[in-house]
Design a protein around this nucleic acid. Structure first.
Lengths: 311, 311
DNA sequence: ATGAAAGCGCTAACAA
DNA sequence: TTGTTAGCGCTTTCAT
């Protein structure tokens, strides 16, 4: 009866409110949950909590959630087994009203999730109408990055992708190819190599390009870490960045300005993605009837000094 | 009665266990919490969730907590007001059994916390026996960093501290001074400047040193971000790192190897700090009688290429 | 408009 | 060793 909307006389309401204030009464959330069958708690599952992109999604989600009166339980699920365990525990115990799943891969997560729980994916799109999702517009990101390089007069653009089992890698690659095609530049498959998002894999990709002797004047790496690895490899190979080779990444990670040279990149607004995801999840909980659809966040080009005009 | 320790015949137990397995029964956590007055949930409050050091503490804590059967609720509390609100909500609603407070400052957090909640501070030491705490051995970190530079023959060592209201800044400074003193080098206060942990503040500190014309051949920055800013400023000022000036930081942040030059630093094992903190918190919850005392994590020198011998 | 009582799904204490 | 019951602190429904 303590809740807002009610049929009580103003007089009584006032007296109750005074009493509440005086005694410092605060309802017990557990008992409340028990009675109304609602916990006002969301769970966020992420491969880890330290990668800047994940952490920042979580921060956005937490902020949005709390603003709407929910708490956020965070857990890391690095592999399929721990993910399955976690989901099991959370759902069975019913302590959580919705799931925010941060993952670059839809499978196998998707199949482990029953239809009855409200779920939002971040980072991958399940393409099923039972689940909502929030992702970067990866194809556009790939397009913008490539277009930027082409506008700087580059036509031999090496490309380092993420793991090709991940949708976002494929989509960024599609964007890369679309930009080349649109601007009339042939796509040379010997200039494309698969990485694993790590700086080391970026380094190795460049080493490979250098050793095969394939010509390129620019590199588009699908994330900043690989871009940074690429820059190191280029320098170790005697190339100047950006004078000899331009490099662009994706993410705009912390201290991107403090690498040498300051990194040109495509901003992925992960904080915003987190907010949007939490917001969508809460909507799904409170109005289950509304249909869910994939949401895309706009990428944005940030020009610093790792790219320059080819002369 | 479903719980482990019990006086039932093996026969009955077996039958019950079968039934459980068959029906897929899983108890409702809320009802459970209600009945036994325990939620098996911890809350972690942090200034933000994205700073690598914080995120990594949280990851360690979450991992330890879950391993011990607890969930971790995470929330960011960037300022005093939001911290107070959060604590209020969490404690009043009794949805949480213990608090893990990540903060560089003990005040005002300390005064906002009632004595009856199990609390562990990470990053600052309340020096009160009602609270446990986990911190880096900051003085030792300062000592080791300075000693490393001295062993490389440096005697004019500039020092950029964190905000001096924070204990860890003071302690790292103490370590710096102790090392100088121990090894017979005078401490020149014009070589000490206060930063705010940001790369920009490291940059500005060096600009200041350069403009005042004070002589130095090495810089000890109290964290990696300031070290990176310092390196940029040195380079902009026409100095080579490490040939002209050596630079050392603290943290060993991600990609420290990929800065130019790869950063020599003092490792702060934040993941471990998180684990220890969660473990301590759980102990405090389960055995409230045990006295709590401040715990210190060992720093470790990691030599890369931003420091070199002075010739 | 207000007060009384039932019940949310468990656990723990008690009787059998 | 087993089955039964009271009660955790709230919300909600039903009488008043």
């Amino acid at each position: 009866m303590i809740n807002g909307h009610e049929r009580v006389s103003d007089d009584t309401r006032l007296r109750v409110e005074n009493a509440i204030a005086e005694l410092g009464y605060q309802p017990n959330a557990i008992a409340r949950s028990m009675a109304q069958g609602r916990t006002f708690t969301l769970a966020c599952l992420s491969p880890n909590l330290t990668d800047f992109t994940f952490a920042s999604i979580i921060e956005g989600a937490e902020s949005e959630a709390r603003q709407k009166g929910y708490f956020l339980l965070t857990a890391s699920a690095p592999d399929e087994k721990s993910f399955a365990n976690l989901v099991n525990q959370l759902l069975a115990s019913q302590r959580t009203e919705g799931l925010l799943v941060i993952t670059p891969n839809v499978e196998p997560h998707q199949t482990l999730l029953p239809k009855y729980v409200s779920t939002v994916f971040v980072g991958a799109d399940p393409r099923l109408d039972r689940f909502a999702s929030v992702t970067l517009d990866d194809e556009k990101a790939g397009y913008i990055a490539t277009e930027h390089l082409i506008q700087l007069n580059h036509s031999q653009i090496a490309h380092i992708t993420g793991p090709m089992i991940e949708d976002s890698s494929q989509n960024r690659l599609n964007g890369y190819q679309a930009a080349l095609h649109k601007l009339g530049i042939p796509c040379d498959s010997s200039l494309i190599l698969e990485g694993d998002w790590s700086a080391t894999s970026g380094y190795q990709a460049i080493q490979h390009f250098l050793s095969t002797g394939v010509k390129f004047s620019a590199v588009f790496a699908q994330n900043d870490r690989m871009a940074v690895g690429a820059i190191r490899a280029l320098r170790d190979g005697g190339k100047l960045v950006p004078q000899d080779v331009s490099v662009i990444g994706v993410d705009d990670m912390p201290l991107a300005t403090y690498f040498d040279p300051p990194l040109t990149t495509i901003l992925q607004d992960t904080y915003r993605m987190g907010r949007v995801a939490a917001c969508t999840l809460i909507d799904a909980i409170e109005q289950p009837e509304v249909a869910c659809q994939p949401m895309h966040i706009e990428p944005r080009l940030i020009v610093r000094q790792s790219t320059s005009r080819l002369i």
